[in-house]
Design a protein around this nucleic acid. Structure first.
Length: 600
RNA sequence: GGCCCCGUGGUGUAGUGGUCAACACGCCGCCCUGUCAAGGCGGAGAUCGCCAGUUCGAACCUGGUCGGGGUCGCCA
């Protein structure tokens, strides 16, 4: 036996007892004739005292000890002498007096320090030595949190009658959605599997099988550029239920998330019940389908007040079927000119033609209304008074206006709103604000490829009133039983009620531009199944990584994944992706187009 | 693919045209029996990501390139 306790377990009740502990040397304080070490494992630290009077001889003398050596110590737990307690440590009132020890392994000097008080080492170095980075307590806590979340979900869904079922990782490439990661087949040269972007069709087939309630905590793969909240492989809780309506799925989701957060001992407050908002109002009020509702500052419509304005930038936009919309920034008059200019620049980076800012000046002791703006000479006082009154802007505030096409204008203002929320500290970092966004459009117009695409995925059920009229002509009007769970401006889960009738599914595919042949080729496994009594069904898929980000307060998805990849999809630890040998390529029947990229 | 930011001993930083590239932590050695981010003294360790250019002279300026981060496109 290597140990009797984890390092943080001994307490005053064990005083006088003989115990054995094992762990890493976190820190060594060598006083010449006396050595203190902090012995560390995943649970924490305990101070061990090496005093020559108490120690047996050993192959290593204790003054050879170095950081990160792995040792086993046997000794007696002792109350620390008066005045030497360390209240920063849970074990700070006691210490282990070493009587015997064994060096289980030595360690080279680490490439970076694990101490918490230093500034963070460059991430690429930490990823290369991820196994060392993960020794740090903050990293362990995140992995522990992740374990608890997944454990809760499994228990909760088990209690509610769900079956956890595995689905294949080697499946078939489909043209919809993200780029696939592909795997060449040796037995079928020239043919490829694809890794699932999600087990979507498989779980629907399980519903046809009568499984009724399915879930899986499963890796999904999308060969698209990573972001701070996106990795090429990530984990979803994929779940599906038969004989359910949208309301059933949302209620289950809400109950699960509420129960989850309550089960965790974390310092976060959250709203209950969750808010509900349609996609259309989210876009109109917040300029995004994932609004951060921890703060207000809704987008306001200034169009009708601006349509006759002599300032052509405003009136001409309205004439050309555009809009003038904007934000009232509370206390915005305190912004420096430099700060305002950076907002204008930010708007341009987002593709906006410009940002009109109007600072309503604070005039203590006077009722005079005055304002500042770079377009001051084009704007009259009455207009500014008018829009201020209508949209409740007060002295000391700033009005920001964007003129242009409606959707683009809203999206720009949505991003500006998020930036201002961050810059002005408008929200409480310890708050979790959950909201279901519902009634997404079934289709979206893809301007680049001049075709309709699914806004969620092609298996989404349209609302009843559109079900008998799924045509190209009204494609933009069709709303769907499709929903997202959004928290603090981040999409946490996404789901829908699915189509379960072959004819309706075929109508949707035809609007997406698939011929009958293509539909059969790519989706016959699902369409055939629908002919054998497919039940109504629907589900949702929360992103596990994002849930952990939210709960742990981290801003980067790499922090919640044990072995993540960089933004270029590189794994610095294994140095993958990597080349194959000539024999491997030959066996797969693959030749490399640019041999200079493969020197094997 | 576009845009923005970053790259200096092992780690984190300073250094914006001119002698041996500075500091902290870490590391090595010596001293030290109550420290806990121990302390004291001493020491080693960097051709400033890479390539080219400008210049009498480049860590510093310019161009390119590689790597990292953020973001837009992309992500059914």
């Amino acid at each position: 036996m290597y140990r009797d306790y984890y390092c943080n377990e001994p307490n005053e009740k064990l005083i006088g007892q003989d115990v054995k502990l094992s762990g890493w040397i976190n820190k060594r304080r060598d006083h010449g004739g006396l050595l203190f070490i902090d012995l560390r494992d995943r649970s924490g630290l305990i101070q061990v005292v090496f005093d020559p009077d108490n120690l047996k001889e050993n192959e290593f003398h204790w003054n050879q000890f170095r950081s990160e050596w792995v040792i086993q110590v046997q000794g007696v737990i002792q109350k620390r002498p008066e005045g030497t307690e360390n209240l920063n440590l849970p074990t700070g009132k006691i210490e282990l007096i070493a009587k015997n020890y064994k060096v289980l392994n030595v360690s080279k000097t680490l490439p970076f320090e694990l101490t918490d008080f230093k500034e963070e080492t460059d991430e690429i170095i930490r990823l290369k030595y991820r196994y060392l980075d993960l020794r740090r307590s903050q990293k362990y806590e995140i992995l522990n949190l992740r374990h608890k979340v997944v454990k809760f979900i499994r228990d909760y869904l088990d209690t509610n009658g769900f079956l956890e079922i595995e689905t294949p990782i080697l499946i078939k490439s489909t043209p919809e959605g993200a780029r696939d990661f592909v795997v060449p087949s040796r037995n079928n040269q020239g043919q490829f599997y694809a890794l699932p972007q999600s087990p979507q069709q498989l779980k629907q087939l399980l519903m046809v099988s009568g499984i009724d309630k399915y879930f899986q905590i499963v890796k999904c793969f999308r060969d698209e550029d990573p972001r701070s909240d996106r990795q090429p492989e990530f984990t979803q809780l994929d779940l599906e239920m038969s004989f359910v309506t949208q309301e059933d799925v949302l209620n289950l989701t809400e109950e699960m998330f509420t129960g989850l957060i309550k089960s965790l001992d974390i310092d976060k407050k959250f709203n209950s019940p969750f808010q509900r908002m349609t996609y259309d109002s989210a876009m109109e009020l917040y300029g995004t389908d994932k609004p951060d509702l921890r703060f207000d500052m809704q987008i306001k419509d200034f169009s009708s007040l601006s349509k006759d304005n002599p300032f052509k930038v405003l009136s001409n936009t309205i004439k050309n079927k555009g809009v003038v919309k904007g934000l009232v920034v509370p206390g915005g008059s305190a912004f420096s000119r430099k700060k305002i200019d950076s907002l204008v620049e930010y708007t341009r980076e987002l593709g906006g033609s410009g940002l009109i800012w109007i600072v309503l000046e604070e005039n203590p002791g006077s009722d005079d209304f005055e304002f500042k703006s770079v377009v001051r000479k084009y704007l009259d006082l009455d207009y500014v008074k008018n829009i201020s009154t209508t949209h409740n802007a007060k002295k000391g505030d700033m009005i920001l206006l964007v003129a242009g096409e409606n959707k683009h204008t809203l999206e720009i203002l949505g991003q500006l709103r998020n930036k201002l929320g961050r810059d002005l500290d408008l929200f409480d970092k310890n708050e979790l604000n959950f909201c279901f966004i519902t009634d997404f459009p079934l289709f979206e117009w893809d301007e680049e490829n001049k075709k309709w695409t699914s806004s969620h995925h092609p298996f989404t059920m349209p609302h009843e009133e559109h079900q008998n009229n799924i045509t190209i002509d009204n494609a933009s009007d069709i709303r769907a039983y499709c929903y997202d769970l959004v928290a603090n401006g981040s999409e946490i889960a996404s789901g829908s009620i699915r189509i379960h009738k072959k004819e309706m599914q075929e109508e949707v595919f035809s609007i997406l531009g698939y011929s009958k042949n293509e539909t059969n080729e790519l989706f016959s496994q699902l369409l055939d199944a629908f002919e054998y009594g497919a039940p109504p069904h629907g589900g949702i898929a929360p992103g596990i990584d994002r849930i952990i980000m939210l709960l742990s307060g981290t801003e980067n998805i790499r922090d919640v994944i044990a072995f993540p990849k960089t933004q270029s999809g590189f794994d610095p630890l294994f140095e993958s992706p990597s080349q194959l040998t000539a024999e491997q390529l030959n066996e797969l029947g693959i030749s490399i187009k640019n041999p200079e990229n493969n020197s094997n």
